[in-house]
Write a protein that binds this DNA or RNA. Structure first.
Lengths: 366, 366
DNA sequence: GTGAAAGCGCTAACAT
DNA sequence: ATGTTAGCGCTTTCAC
């Protein structure tokens, strides 16, 4: 199994053909169309190839000629460490990888961290299409992807005219949660949300920042909450919304702390992701608040760990989302009109939501 | 942001040059070496490019010319669903992705499921090198990778002469666990291990199968256990070893069940992975066995979930493993002799290991 | 069943 | 600062 280190290929299809005294076509056929030449000749070709150390047709040259790279790119403008630690993201990745494997094409993670403004990697990626997963609408990498003449499908966000997209109906999903909370009687609520824009803002997010959010998913969820609560007389501009740039359980906890320190009378913490909610749960415990007796906490996504924790949340099928995106991309040639796939969501009421305590209960115990 | 659907590029560097009345070099320079031409001319080039819908130099053609694909391939001969559900594997993937991102190169998952004998995807992948993660030594995809004239580094297994490798010292790590168990006084032990070969065998693995295992990691761990326990008088051929093809918590549980049904007197369950150990823990609970009072359970890997469960295990730095592999691969040009990186492991004694109960205790309670 | 011709689209010496 | 030349290694009609 030993292998010499060489940086330059020594044998090519042409040199092999010369050595054998046959045409390049024949050698090419030996690899790509075995039925196009006699078994005996093919055997000879392959045998000579081994002797000369010819590793078979160069994939890049082949791709140039056939105009197929045999891979799709994945653009993920998130810190990889967070992406791989978020079960929802891992689920999407798994589904996408599955779809690619089924089709026998590679899945290439394109290097594009949020900080790096360098978009060259997108231009250099030898892929037949892109899947873009949850990036802000003003991301330069996204613009680079859009400038490439290959099919693209976007997962979750942003929503772009004429571009295939797969994602849940965020407004409807958020309504499910909001209705649940409103029904329970919550009026003094607080919100923990993910990054709203590319600039870092760990703290309260005023209404204008909410409305101008470059992450469509967060914008929609907040807007829907605002609408729902306004409809029962809650003045949204008075509702505390705490934003976190990073998406970790610890950030969820610190956000909850910040919110509760400033608004101790809040009866429900609405989180725009399970990860943040898990952190909120931890912080509630730390403060000696019982969930749901003293405070209600809800999440979003329905990841396994949240289910185990009994979190009230809206579940969305993340694996299916990745799979659907992959399939959509790989069948892009067959279509002409852009396609949007909306995935079903389901409210899962767990053990972290209940009616708010009354004022008396709050002072004198249940 | 709308974009026409076209499958064939309409403008090329050459046609753009013609339109502008300049040479192709100049256009190329406009993209790749801005300092090689006047800002004014460059502006004109880019402007005309936009007008003609020229998306910039074709990545594949550029790769052919420069002999750089700008991506590395990852060969993972495991069912993706299991790979993405194993925290250790996800950690490796993350580390590798991080290293690639740092270097600005893509990371391509090469489609190669265990079942699929089709090796073509390996030949078609336009990559500058491969990382191979934990595959059996007789895997046809591995052979295909080795036949390609690009640098390769292997994570964990197999060990191949002349090939870069990064992994823990499995023998030493296993000794740490074995010493711990032997020291506690365990002599009647059972083992739960992962797949030993490409053929499915969910059940007991006789000694010869253990010794002929195509997965070097499992082979080493079993051999080391055999040696250690033999040294204190335990007849290894009498030690039950249960193998599982799939690597899930449920499979760990069912393996534990199978083992304990046949060998109820076993005082310790040694698992060759945390995932299997987590399953064993669950099964112990189901049978009403207290851990560690009634039975000791140990794992291998030291993933976060195992730590949370208090599992006694050997920790290995999975993230660093992936990172190291990536760096090694990306610096392969600088070296001539193959390099092997051995990562440190650390015994982490948790709350799942204790001395075995004596015979009396077993009958009359503690 | 086999070969000749014609590029795929680009970059990198090396001139000028 | 810009152009000329010479391929990178391969596949694919289309003849024979």
């Amino acid at each position: 199994m030993n292998r010499p280190m060489r940086t330059r290929r020594q044998a090519t299809l042409a040199s092999l053909a010369a050595e054998l005294g046959v045409s390049r076509t024949t050698v090419s056929n030996a690899y790509n169309r075995p039925d196009q030449l006699s078994p005996e000749l093919r055997r000879r070709v392959l045998e000579t190839a081994r002797r000369l150390g010819y590793p078979g047709p160069d994939p890049v040259a082949r791709s140039l000629r056939t105009r197929k790279a045999g891979a799709v790119g994945l653009l993920l403008t998130e810190n990889l460490s967070y992406a791989f630690r978020d079960p929802a993201a891992v689920g999407v990745l798994e589904g996408l990888a599955l779809a690619c494997e089924d089709a026998g094409v590679g899945l290439q993670l394109v290097p594009a961290s949020p900080g790096r403004e360098d978009v060259a990697a997108v231009h250099r990626a030898g892929v037949d299409g892109f899947v873009v997963y949850s990036v802000p609408d003003d991301d330069p990498h996204l613009a680079a992807v859009m400038s490439r003449p290959v099919p693209t499908v976007i997962i979750d966000q942003p929503q772009l005219d004429g571009i295939d997209r797969v994602g849940p109906d965020d407004a409807a999903a958020t309504e499910q949660i909001a209705d649940h909370l409103v029904g329970l009687g919550h009026r003094q609520v607080g919100v923990l949300c993910m990054r709203l824009a590319r600039d870092r803002n760990d703290g309260f997010a005023p209404v204008d920042r909410q409305q101008e959010a470059h992450y469509h998913v967060q914008r929609t969820r907040l807007a829907t909450l605002a609408k729902k609560f306004a409809s029962v007389g809650v003045e949204w501009s008075a509702v505390p919304v705490v934003e976190r740039f990073e998406h970790t359980v610890d950030d969820g906890a610190s956000a909850a702390r910040e919110l509760l320190d400033a608004n101790p009378h809040v009866t429900a913490l609405i989180c725009t992701s399970d990860i943040l909610a898990l952190g909120a749960l931890a912080e509630a415990g730390r403060r000696g608040l019982r969930v749901p007796a003293d405070i209600t906490v809800t999440g979003f996504d329905g990841v396994a760990e949240a289910t185990r924790a009994g979190l009230t949340t809206v579940h969305q099928p993340v694996l299916e989302k990745g799979k659907a995106a992959g399939k959509l991309l790989l069948s892009a040639g067959d279509r002409v009109a852009p396609k949007v796939i909306t995935l079903p969501t389901e409210l899962r009421v767990g053990t972290t939501s209940a009616p708010p305590r009354t004022a008396e209960e709050r002072w004198f115990g249940p």
